[in-house]
Design a binder for these strands. Structure first.
Lengths: 345, 345
DNA sequence: ATGAAAGCGCTAACAG
DNA sequence: CTGTTAGCGCTTTCAT
């Protein structure tokens, strides 16, 4: 007698309560059409039977899953993690669940992952640091699934996005360094071709230009947005015969790597060389030295993007491009240079 | 003419190809029963039509969603984030998607979240640092959904779990401190009643007992597993008239908070006081000073737990309790004490 | 190798 | 206020 047991369904409850499925359905949804007592009785029975209505059955008819898909490069990246906290909180608040997937910053994986979301019929999708950006439009239009991008890395604007205003922030950071007396300021970027990197580089460049500082290309190095890449790039910079007195890093992880490399070269930051980050991760206060950086409102960005997506889902109109502003956070990794140019003292 | 458009379904493809739904279904699943040419033709048509089969329709009949639910306290916690990376990678590898939810370490929210997972008919559930532990058993047994816990915080063993072997690791850490010459060693814990905390405390206690060190209760303080709690607890410890020479912290976040408090009290670590963490978060190398800690194989734990869950789903038998071992990582936050007891020098 | 038919669990007109 | 009916998109016997 190996009968396959199936979880109790709405029919079981209907039978137990001596009513129709519709009545059960309505009672459980709190429909005002149902007699209060019957509704109560049904709820009691359902509860006693341990009945948990199936969202998949429901979704099939309502064509809504109350689920959003979010794709990150990797959730181990603390920037992503903080944005996702904001997303999950806002989504949950509105009754949505979140499907999470990692793309490892590969366009291929990103596409696969979005397709798996589509197959699962998510109501909307959120992509952080997308490599594909505008290329989604055809697919998503066809599927009628709204998409919003957070810090789009694809070099074309996307219809719905929330982004940090990179250039002004990066420029403010560089100007701060210039005000401290630096003239020879290097830049460690992200992978080539990423949009945030391009914009942050532009901000850096603008500040230099406005200050009338002309710098050779040997002062810009490419990292990978992570500690390792930052350390390597910094290593290359420190092999230069004519050292920079400061370096603007693409983000905090890069800066942490640069910090490591500086230490490995027996350089003391900021005495021997100044360094700045971008993001303001929670660790910035506790690195050695604490990092001067730009604060991105990470949770807020997650929340804003989720809000935009929910607006789209509800057919409400909304601002399609949200730019948030960064904020300079001065800590201890930048100080006036010992000598105005970078000749080792 | 405001016709509601619905996404193309299997029927549309069947009609377009002049075959039945069954044939389309089989062709798309790569069933060997279908003529190779028809199958190819159908696939082409489906692709051209941009047809994406609905997992919700499929799930309704197969009673499988290929989804697992994972609940964390908060994904902003870097420990959680690293475990989740491992989970997502392993799940994805096996064709599963992950639903992510945050419990904020509240038993109430944890329960709500698990129920929402059940409603969505996830195939299995993974809970990190669960506050509810064994209390799930009835619900999940009824729903026939396997659950595995990672670092269960509920003070009873749970049927399926992967856990760090806390006591030996914590004891090794404390013994290391004793070997350095410390006698007055404090402990900053987590919220009271959490299992990991109790076990780590026990390890600490064992080491002291074996060394014949008797310490008063004023040397154990409670934190909250986060930076703020660590800082506060350390503050209280540093108000003692007779200071400890070393403090064992529940985890790295706590230790980072303790580091801040020490700095605020103008104490230099490890010269004035030694400090240890637990977890080995990626930042440990870059704090000031770098943290001596216990490494937890975080991704591996995520992967192991996912593997166990998949075994359960497949009806394979598996080791129900996996314990992984921590590893002492010596860095620079602990050193021999200046004076053997903690009288301020 | 293919089709017809039934049904997964639920909701939503529509009727009463 | 409640029941009947149909159908969401798919898979899966069972025939053929």
């Amino acid at each position: 007698m190996n009968r396959i047991v199936r979880p109790t369904s709405i029919k079981d409850i209907a039978k137990a309560a001596g009513v129709s499925c519709s009545t059960v359905s309505r009672a459980l949804q709190g429909s005002p059409l149902i007699n209060h007592e019957t509704a109560d009785r049904i709820r009691r029975i359902a509860h006693k039977a341990g009945y948990v209505p199936s969202a998949v059955g429901r979704s099939l008819v309502t064509r809504k899953t109350n689920t959003i898909g979010v794709v990150v490069t990797t959730i181990a990246d603390p920037f992503m993690a903080e944005v996702v906290t904001g997303i999950e909180a806002a989504a949950n608040e509105a009754g949505y669940s979140v499907l999470l997937a990692q793309s490892y910053a590969e366009g291929g994986r990103e596409t696969i992952v979005v397709e798996s979301f589509l197959e699962r019929r998510v109501d909307g999708v959120l992509v952080l640091a997308s490599r594909m950006g505008a290329r989604y439009t055809p697919l998503l239009t066809r599927m009628r699934v709204p998409l919003v991008l957070i810090n789009n890395q694809f070099p074309e604007p996307f219809e719905h996005s929330v982004e940090i205003d990179n250039a002004p922030a990066s420029r403010a950071l560089t100007e701060y360094l210039i005000r401290l007396g630096h003239r020879r300021i290097a830049y460690i970027g992200d992978h080539l071709g990423h949009q945030s990197d391009a914009e942050r580089y532009n901000g850096y460049r603008q500040a230099l230009d406005l200050a009338g500082i002309a710098l050779g290309p040997e002062l810009v190095a490419a990292g990978d947005g992570r500690i390792e890449g930052g350390a390597e790039a910094m290593g290359r910079l420190l092999d230069l015969s004519h050292l920079p007195t400061a370096v603007v890093c693409y983000n905090d992880m890069t800066a942490i790597g640069a910090l490591r490399a500086a230490r490995a070269h027996s350089l003391v930051v900021p005495r021997d060389i100044s360094l700045t980050g971008f993001d303001d991760l929670f660790i910035c206060t506790d690195t050695n030295p604490p990092l001067t950086t730009i604060r991105q409102p990470k949770r807020r960005m997650g929340q804003l993007a989720t809000g935009m997506l929910l607006d789209l889902l509800a057919g409400r109109k909304c601002e399609p491009h949200v730019k948030v502003q960064g904020e300079l956070v001065v800590r201890e990794s930048a100080a006036p240079p010992r000598s105005p140019d970078g000749v080792r003292g």
